[in-house]
Amino acid sequence: MSRINPWGAVRSLALRTPPWSSPRSGRIAAQGACISPISPRRGLADDTTFTRPPYPGHHYDGMSPPSPPPDTELELPAIDRESMVETWAPNFLNAEALAALEEAGTAQVTYDDTEGLKFERPERPGQHAQLQDRYHPVVDQVTKMLMQDGKLSKAQRHMSFILNYLRTTSPKPNPLRPLVPGSPPVEQLPMNPLAYLTAAIDSVAPLIRIRGLKGAAGGGQALELPEPLPVRARRRIAIQWIIDVVERKRSSGSGRTQFATRFGQEILAVVEGRSVVWERRALAHKQGTAARANLNHPAVAPRKKL
């Protein structure tokens, strides 16, 4: 237990909220009354002082200009009206502008956006709806890795043939080689070739790679250290392994679907657990496990605090 305990003093503080308005509308009403509409929004937020609404009993909701008090003479006899006009001018125009600003802040449309347009206004593309994001990340990565000599269009053609090959194959599940958790059941994969491809690649992707720290092991030898991989790099290694196997495979056919068929057959082999890529993954993980002890090496281990 520390010697200085601030909580005792803090507990005695009282935070009082104004009883007559909800926090948000109260703030708008207050600010609407005293701050000009051209003042920036940032300044409004910084204003932490609290002020009274124009007149008691009326709660300005910020959506419509406040209706004038029905019978001011009768209802507000006790308030000094001269001073109220000066300091609390019920300038509903300001309030209206501020309400509009507030609405814009909450992304509600306040203006007529179809004015001057023949058809309805097209939606703006979102952050990840740009031209470069038009393909799924896995499809994009595989396509780019299949590309040779910068012929992207040809690689895309291969990719579409691969996906259509996957549609027509029915893999048999292998309990010894389960797919990555979260992937759909094997029987359902052909209906969704993208999930098929993703499941195959993610299942054989290694989680770690071995990084060599030059000369740290002594005698000029590199100290092998396991290093976790981000998703994209993981997939990259898996795709490269699959491509290596595909390139060594004997071509059994000819024509435009020949390469795609070989690639698709390897994806099928991965899902069915027959592929040699599984062995490569196991080897990579084994090496990583062995090199795990090196993390305690003085060259890399965090120094103990004295």
Binding site: R167, T168, T169, M191, R250, G253, G255, Q258, T261
Partner: peptide
């Protein structure tokens, strides 16, 4: 030494007609 495809095997692959896909609905 890899076994080269049999005579006509590659062309048969290219010309193969498949008329059904068991995975399609």
């Amino acid at each position: 030494k890899k076994k080269s495809p049999a005579a006509g095997e590659r062309k048969a692959f290219r010309k193969r007609i498949t008329l059904s896909n068991d995975n399609a609905i």
